[in-house]
Amino acid sequence: MLLSRQGNPPPSQPNLIQKLLRMLALTRERELTCDEVFDLMDYYTELEQAGENVQALMPQVAHHLQICPECREECEALLAVLTANVS
C-alpha cells in the first residue's frame, strides 16, 4: 500500500469547546450506531442520489451523519462512486 504516513494530528486544535458543545447539542436519547447506519447506507444514498429529501425520509441516519465523521465520509464516498462519470 502506497499511503504515506501522516501521523496523529496534534491535540491542541482551537475551538475544542465548541466542538464538544456542538456534539452535546446534537446528542439525542436515541441514536443509530455506525453498524445500523451502515445497513441503511446504500438505500439512503440511492434516495439522496435521486434527489429525495433524505433528512425527512431517514432523519435518524441523517442525524448520525452529523455526529459521525467516518459514516459521513463513507456516505460521501459512496455517492461519489455511484455518480462517477467513468463511461
Binding site: L40, D42, T45, E70, E73, E74, A77, V81
Partner: peptide
C-alpha cells in the same frame, strides 16, 4: 437485503473496505 440496487450495496462494501 434488496433495499437498493445490488451494485450500490457492493459499492457500499467497497467504500467501507477502502476507507
Amino acid at each position: 437485503a434488496g433495499r437498493s440496487k445490488f451494485t450500490t450495496w457492493a459499492a457500499k462494501i467497497a467504500v467501507h473496505q477502502a476507507l
